[in-house]
Nucleic acid binder design. Structure first.
Lengths: 353, 353
DNA sequence: CTGAAAGCGCTTACAG
DNA sequence: CTGAAAGCGCTTACAG
């Protein structure tokens, strides 16, 4: 099962010139005669020559590959971010290596080591919810491997970060519910080890406070981002003597679970309970009533993260300061929170996929 | 920005022995003295030595990496298959390189070349719906690069394939609708350039024929796998003078689009129209009424594909015959097709994510 | 049991 | 303008 790939040596022999000359001609060096250059290029094309990337890596101490560590690529949020990363990476000639932590600390550590042993030029990371200790990243950073965090960052590590304004987004979502007339607003939070969850919860609380509304502990349920949590939390909230008249879920997945539970329990949205999510899944617009949410710029987040990382890789100088970019989520009002609106509108057709 | 990674040379100098000895000790060669071996291993561990994979690749003409070409990783079907692939690959010491064709022929071709120039040891492919010509894969195969196709295969290329029994699954889905009492069953098909779409359509037709039901052209709408297609098709079907009393969609995404449209139009499922999908998306169980579907063994498909590929890579002998594995999808009956059933059941909690 | 040498595919000072 | 040589990090016959 031998692969026949042409090498510079073979091209040289066939042309009766030296390897050095072939190599220089291929790289369009100015010190090679035009005629020689033409002959080399022609043969290289005919033979489908492509340089062996491993030989180059060995020489340059560069691999032209970057690693990406995310909880889960089947999560649409991450697969869209990865789309943005690949967009930039391929354009600039880099290969992308993806590793999933499945939100488990040990997997994140072993994935990080594995990817590092593959000598990637840099790393793009969104940490696992189970990660509380960050030496595996710190080690790399200290070894001079550039890291950029996106969405879920390690606050204590100094490097570029690309985040979403979770606090502001949650504030805006809650404010929207208030303006629609809701007064007893509950929140279903994600895993509190993650800053994104804490920030969203804080934005929610501060909006309530700003409008002089009650912040009740029993109206704040904490779990993680799965839809099962949303359903359980909805049961729990609606069983309270003091029922909420709105629920702001920290993610669309949570919200969709809550949505199903609320329907089952016989509540009308938004008349009985208004509902909002965070993230905008493809199907959030297709459920009945369609789910209001905060749209996150996922693809753009991937693009910007990759750009920052590649810039870091390609500048020789050490970095003096690091940038934290905060992208704005956008309010997307649909029927689940439009009080007094009627839900039947042609929907689901102008929605992005 | 120089990376400091220890090399064998440095270890050798520090220990005052030769590179050869270090190398052999590291590989646990039997010709090295126990004491020397211990000293080498200890230092290697202390210095966090990891062999440079590029040097090894150069030597072995092996990269221990495989390429995966899929239409779109944000499609849950593919991200789950990729999960299975990575499971096997990492376990057997291989790196996975993913490339998305976005269902565009040109992208698939350039992705294939790109991945090939990275010298992967083998390729796992699910072709783009826009691909009608397959020389880019044939070239690789002829160069001795093993390829395994999954789900969407190129029929004319002789190699291992892992498929789903789309014909049988569609037959079973249609039969289920018939047994529930439906008599005017429509089908919304995927892109007909894909065998999976044609096979599903054929299974649908043959089931109708077997039960002596009418196969009407106007009840078969063809598009692609997007939910927009499902919605448009539902409008079209329900506008017919002869309305169907059931719709079998070739994918859950199509079905979810149809589901939203049917609700909007005021139809009750399954009383007015029964609905079935194919694939089982995470959210198919969370819509109201929950969607019946054929569950595909996606993770298992990824696992088996990767195993076949790695076996091919690791056996030296040329392959004499190739295997086509056909995995069975499983009927998952939910409320959208359970005629006479009442939908309210605790749902969405025992569902896989 | 250990070392010197050649070579995987490539680039680049150094000569000419 | 072109070639011979060294070297990136590693392994492995070939000597001893």
């Amino acid at each position: 099962m031998t692969r026949q790939t042409v090498t510079i040596k073979e091209l040289a022999k066939e042309l009766g010139i030296s390897k050095s000359t072939v190599s220089r001609a291929l790289r369009d060096s100015s010190e090679i005669g035009a005629e020689t250059k033409a002959r080399v290029l022609e043969l290289a094309r005919a033979r489908h020559y492509t340089p062996n990337p491993f030989a180059l890596s060995l020489l340059n101490h560069r691999t032209y590959s970057i690693g990406v560590i995310v909880p889960d690529i089947s999560n649409p949020f991450f697969s869209s971010v990865i789309g943005g990363i690949e967009d930039v990476a391929y354009q600039r000639g880099y290969q992308v290596m993806i590793f999933q932590s499945h939100d488990v600390y040990e997997r994140e550590v072993s994935g990080t080591r594995h990817i590092a042993s593959r000598r990637v030029d840099g790393l793009l990371v969104s940490i696992a919810s189970g990660t509380l200790e960050h030496n595996h990243f710190r080690e790399l950073a200290e070894n001079g491997i550039p890291i950029v965090f996106f969405d879920r960052a390690v606050e204590e590590i100094q490097t570029h970060k690309v985040l979403v304004d979770d606090y502001g987004g949650a504030f805006q979502a809650t404010e929207h519910l208030i303006r629609e007339g809701c007064r007893r607003i509950a929140h279903i939070a994600g895993h509190l080890s993650l800053a994104i969850s804490r920030n969203r919860a804080q934005g929610y609380k501060d909006a309530l406070i700003k409008y002089g509304l009650e912040v009740r502990d029993e109206w704040i349920v904490t779990g993680d981002f799965r839809h099962e949590v949303g359903a359980d939390a909805a049961y729990q909230l609606m069983a309270l003597k003091q029922r909420p008249d709105a629920i702001f879920a920290a993610s669309d997945r949570i919200a969709i679970g809550a949505h199903a539970a609320l329907r089952q329990l016989g509540y009308k949205m938004p008349a009985d309970v208004a509902l909002m999510g965070f993230s905008d899944l493809a199907f959030s617009s297709l459920i009945d009533p369609p789910l209001s949410t905060m749209v996150q710029p996922t693809f753009e987040m991937g693009r910007q993260s990759a750009e920052l990382l590649l810039d870091m890789i390609e500048t020789k100088k050490p970095h003096m300061f690091y940038e934290t970019r905060v992208l704005k989520p956008e309010l997307m009002v649909r029927e689940s929170s439009r009080k007094g609106g009627k839900w039947i509108e042609p929907t689901g057709f102008e929605i992005q996929d």
